[in-house]
């Protein structure tokens, strides 16, 4: 059973001679607990695919299923509700709200997801898990890139989503920090069974994945399910 699934999804931009097929009949399913990396050259459709799975955009044709519910034609309001509760995002540029502290950034996510319980306590615990227990009141501008990405991970995971979409999460970090971030996500995948879907050009991330999907010209060129490679090194050790 897939928690997220795309069936023959197409996304076309423009019309006539200007028509561009960003996705051209993609079918993919993601089972709970998967740690998948989406690879491919620029323009291959990675971002568009993430937008479809993250419910940030709707397909021109085909179907998107979230926990077996077809969400392809849902209203913007319903999509927002599903995003809030079921999907976590980690972005390349961290995308934290600069006027809010690390704690408040995580709390916003819990608030929008309507997560039951004490949001402050849940957010604090999530930040402690990513090693920021002592920096919870700092604003993003007072944190390093790696620390900001940790806040973003805490924000994505605090609400216990069905899927975390990480769009080039190590691209703005140095390799050591990137490895730390990757290790945190890997640990959460292995210990808590959180499902991750990465988009990346980073070979270190690719080496950690148990499944690598390669896109080319809006189509799935390769879907390689495998065990973790020993060459993954320290970044993949949890």
């Amino acid at each position: 059973m897939f928690c997220f699934e795309l069936k023959d999804v197409r996304k076309t931009y423009g019309a006539g001679a200007q028509e561009v097929h960003a996705l051209d009949g993609v079918s993919l399913g993601f089972a709970p607990g998967e740690f998948t990396v989406l690879c491919g050259p620029s323009g291959s459709g990675k971002t568009t695919l993430l937008n479809m799975i993250g419910l940030l955009d709707t397909p021109t044709a085909g179907e998107v299923f979230v926990e077996e519910e077809d969400v392809s034609r849902l209203s913007s309001k319903r999509l927002a509700r599903i995003r809030a509760g079921r999907i976590g995002f980690v972005f390349q540029a961290f995308n934290l709200v600069p006027v809010l502290s690390a704690l408040e950034n995580v709390e916003v996510s819990l608030h929008l997801a309507r997560t039951p319980g004490d949001h402050r306590a849940i957010a604090t615990e999530a930040l402690e898990r990513v090693g920021l227990g002592k920096l919870i009141h700092r604003k993003p501008g007072q944190l390093s890139g790696g620390q900001q990405q940790r806040v973003a991970i805490a924000r994505a995971l605090a609400k216990s989503p069905a899927l975390v979409i990480a769009d080039e999460p190590t691209a703005n970090l140095d390799s050591a920090t990137g490895a730390e971030i990757l290790a945190i996500m890997r640990e959460m995948n292995e210990e808590d069974g959180v499902t991750f879907l990465f988009s990346t050009h980073d070979p270190m991330v690719r080496d950690c994945a148990r499944r690598v999907v390669i896109l080319r010209d809006g189509r799935v060129a390769e879907d390689d399910v495998r065990a973790r490679r020993p060459a993954g090194g320290a970044a993949c050790s949890s």
Binding site: A80, R83, N95, S109, L112
Partner: peptide
Amino acid sequence: VREIGTLRALGLRR
């Protein structure tokens, strides 16, 4: 713009 996009991604409605 990016902040608004982030809040929308986190589930904030229009």
